[in-house]
Amino acid sequence: MEIPLSELHPFKDHPFKVKDDEAMMETADSIRQYGVLVPAIARPDPNGGYELVAGHRRHRASELAGKETMPVIVRDLDDDQATIIMVDSNLQRESLLPSERAFAYKMKLEAMKRQAGRPSKENCSQVGNDFGKKSSEVLAEQVGQSKNQIFRYIRLTELIPELLDMVDEKKIAFNPAYELSFLKKEEQVDLLDAMDSEQATPSLSQAQRLKKYSQEGHLTLDMMRVIMGEEKKSDLDKITFTSDTLRKYFPRSYTPQRMQETIIKLLEQWQRKRQQQHER
């Protein structure tokens, strides 16, 4: 059935980000041209209208395409059934952010555990047919991850939003982020301060030490600053110049790529000159 976009509300605590990015604009163009080919799934909202279960991106793309309605399949679903459908419809996407995967795994696992705990007549879920298996084992098989990796992702939901954003932005790698998730919330806030003052993000070994000191009750802001101020091995092998430092030596028309090529040529000439001097 066709339902007005204004009557469709987002799913509560929907973990997937709906961005107006290039992919969204392409979807909007497709809907403008062909309409919505796959109906969304929604359930009646007790407060009026409908709660979207699957189809949040199609809903936004329909708005951008100037549509007033979209095709929707309306189903009576309880909270756990709706959560599992909502997560499954999004997990198939190729480019999921770590935060999206973390909250999706957490929501689905909690829903599966609740379903598994109900009497079999009520429990016609994905878990109900896997007798003797834990919900986490079933979920791991469904998403193609190890049970351990599922729980490592779920640990990321313990990070404060600012740190989790840095994981999504690839400023903090997954493994250090997992270790940082064991820090208390107030320690994570202090870590932001230490990272800012030292202009650094933690490596795996630094994150593991931060976790160790936290668990021992010895982690202070000063200690965080000392740890974050250490030179990483990768930094010892790296020399960085700002464009402002180099710009005065080159014509304005030079691109960064051309500047780099010129520097390499000059260094090669300097090296040849030094070799000639040594041979004399």
Rank of each mutant, 00 (worst) to 15 (best):
Q215F: 06
K12E: 12
L266T: 08
L52W: 09
K133P: 09
T201Y: 15
T255R: 15
Q199F: 08
A104G: 15
E63F: 15
F250Y: 11
K134W: 12
K19F: 05
R57C: 01
L52Q: 09
L192R: 06
F250D: 07
M166A: 15
K184L: 14
L156P: 05
D235W: 13
M25A: 15
R247G: 09
V18A: 08
Q145A: 12
R60Q: 13
S136P: 04
R155P: 08
Y50K: 03
M70C: 08
E122M: 14
L5A: 08
S181P: 08
R252T: 02
F16I: 05
V53K: 03
L219R: 05
Q81K: 11
Y105R: 06
F103K: 13
S203T: 13
Y50T: 03
Q206P: 05
E68C: 01
F131K: 04
A111G: 06
M228I: 03
T220P: 07
D20N: 06
A111M: 09
Q145S: 13
D13F: 15
D244I: 04
D76R: 03
Y105G: 02
I41Y: 05
Q275W: 13
F16G: 04
L97H: 07
R75S: 08
K232Y: 01
N123R: 15
V127P: 00
E158M: 12
G117L: 00
R209S: 10
I263V: 12
E158K: 14
E231F: 06
G35F: 08
E63L: 15
G144V: 11
E22N: 11
R101H: 08
H56C: 04
R57V: 02
D190L: 04
P202M: 05
P161S: 01
F250E: 04
T242S: 15
Q81F: 00
T201C: 09
L191E: 00
A116Q: 11
L236I: 09
G229F: 03
R114W: 06
R32H: 07
S95Y: 08
S214N: 06
S197R: 12
S89M: 09
S89I: 05
L221A: 07
M24D: 06
L37Y: 07
M24A: 11
H59C: 00
N175P: 01
M195F: 03
K211Q: 11
I41N: 01
L8R: 02
P4S: 02
P176Y: 06
D222R: 14
I31V: 12
A23N: 14
D222Y: 07
K212I: 03
L8H: 00
R252A: 09
E187C: 12
E26F: 14
I263E: 00
N123M: 12
P39F: 06
S120M: 11
P119S: 10
A102H: 08
D21H: 10
V38H: 07
L183Y: 02
D45S: 04
A111C: 05
A200C: 04
S197H: 07
L183P: 01
F131G: 00
V74A: 01
A200L: 02
L109E: 02
K185Y: 10
D168W: 11
Q271L: 13
S243M: 15
L183V: 00
N47I: 02
I239L: 13
